[in-house]
Design a protein around this nucleic acid. Structure first.
Length: 426
RNA sequence: GCGGGCGUCGCCAAGUGGUUAAGGCAGCGGCUUGUGGCGCCGCUAUUCGGGGGUUCGAAUCCCCUCGCUCGCCCCA
């Protein structure tokens, strides 16, 4: 019947689902505003090079998951696979990279060409927060605590916060060298996937789900042993503060995360209720990214929350929608005209109105009004229309409350509206 | 990119080679042309994701394809 479909891994968000999205989003915005984080909006398409340089060419995201195409001017363009690189680019372009501390958030679609599964789509949505311009561990703590609080505010239970420190570039390089050496000497014992990654992206081997390799790794050099005293102190301070904030966390020395730009703090918040795509929030520090993309040397830290995964976690209490306040029933030419006028008038108040446009019989319109769970109805039939009046009635259980009001009697209408909206103010 | 499961009306489904493809919800119409919620009655898939094939005959078997789903990889 209909052979045109949405693309694989993309989804239509229909009105009923969006009630939940909108409710959740408004809490997110509220929380961000309260922490004086400012919104930023960047294009969803960028020069391919931005992501290649920013995220790292050897990463999975860049090497096999990007939606890349040539535009009509033969420029290589890419649908953003994540938000951080774009935000950093925007800051540089707008001359803000040498300014003071900035706290920014963005929300919108991201694109990664992957096989869809539970909690993973090709077009998905992220809320991202970036704190740019401070290398203070206080900034890390503030950001992690914000992520944690947001998820708490949404009433999500059973979350695990895992953290690790990757040290600075030097620490990491020292470790990587020693780790590669160890990997090479144990090469034959590694699983095939891990063998492939030895040259390409060795740190990722730490994350492997292959249990034999995991077992083997118990004897491998550990990243934390290669951190400088300075890096260790920094990490310790963060942990102390999290303790002080009573934010429970688990140290995971194997948490490295897939994007090249992370330094020092890396963290992830996971939920057991998400199946195999358990991460609802991931983030970390990226002190070298801004310089790498062409800005001033400026430290930063950020996180992203996957909104689809978030929606899977928040309970049904976010699905509550506001009912219609007034359903306008009308029959006859004159009545229709009056209905239009009323519906326009009601828009000025904080009132949700629906005007019946079916032209069917009054009883039919009443049935419809009943079905859409309106709080009240207005009836304008031929009788009312002749007198330039309308009947307004509370619709919940009985016919107790009913009033006839003149079309031009705004005071009468306003007074009546207090019945449906208690805290109503004109 | 690799592997497993699945695909019958808007939704939930019965049907596993043989005359007209159950049923429920929703929708529409009526009983009841200006007053609703209940009830009752009626209507709604020439077609089983799409395309080919096997067969006298296919939603049911085979192949291809698309999509969904779960896992791997990876991440949000």
């Amino acid at each position: 019947m209909n052979n045109l479909r949405n693309l694989r891994g993309t989804a239509d968000l229909m009105p009923d689902q969006l009630i939940k999205w909108q409710n959740v989003e408004s809490i997110l915005r509220e929380q961000l505003q309260r922490s004086s984080v400012k919104e930023i909006r960047t294009p969803i398409i960028e020069m391919t090079e931005l992501f290649e340089r920013g995220i790292g060419e050897t990463t999975d995201v860049v090497s096999k998951e990007m939606y890349t195409f040539l535009d009509r001017g033969e420029r290589s363009c890419t649908l953003r696979p994540e938000g951080t690189a774009s935000v950093v680019r925007a800051i540089i372009n707008n001359g803000l990279s040498n300014n003071s501390y900035q706290k920014l958030w963005y929300m919108g679609p991201m694109f990664r060409y992957e096989r869809p599964q539970a909690g993973r789509q090709r077009q998905f949505h992220q809320l991202g927060v970036e704190y740019i311009g401070s290398n203070s561990p206080r900034s890390d703590v503030e950001l992690i605590s914000l992520a944690w609080d947001i998820l708490q505010k949404l009433g999500i239970k059973n979350l695990n916060l895992e953290i690790n420190s990757l040290g600075d570039i030097e620490d990491r390089e020292n470790y990587q060298n020693s780790f590669i050496e160890w990997l090479e000497s144990n090469y034959k014992l590694l699983d095939i996937d891990s063998q492939k990654r030895v040259k390409k992206n060795p740190l990722r081997i730490l994350d492997t789900k292959n249990s034999e390799t995991q077992n083997l790794l118990k004897n491998a050099p550990v990243l934390i042993d290669f951190l400088s005293q300075k890096s260790l102190d920094r990490y310790a301070l963060i942990k102390e503060n999290l303790d002080f904030l009573k934010i429970p966390f688990i140290e995971n020395v194997k948490l490295v995360r897939g994007l090249d730009y992370y330094t020092h703090t890396a963290f992830e918040i996971t939920s057991g209720e998400l199946g195999s795509q358990a991460t609802v929030c991931g983030g970390g520090r990226y002190d070298n990214l801004i310089k790498q993309i062409g800005g001033n040397d400026s430290p930063a830290i950020g996180f992203a929350i996957g909104l689809e995964r978030l929606m899977l976690l928040v309970g049904k209490n976010f699905e509550i929608k506001r009912d219609i306040d007034v359903y306008i029933i009308n029959k006859g030419m004159r009545a229709e005209a009056m209905a239009h006028k009323l519906s326009s008038k009601l828009r000025k108040y904080d009132v949700i109105t629906e005007m019946d446009v079916s032209g069917s019989s009054i009883s039919k319109q009443l049935k419809k009004a009943n079905k859409c769970k309106t709080k009240s109805i207005i009836v304008i039939g031929e009788e009312e229309a002749m007198k330039n009046q309308f009947k307004i009635r509370l619709f919940s259980n009985n016919k107790d409350k009913e009033k006839i009001i003149n079309l031009d009697d705004d005071d009468g209408l306003e007074k009546w509206l207090k019945n449906i909206i208690p805290d109503y103010s004109a």
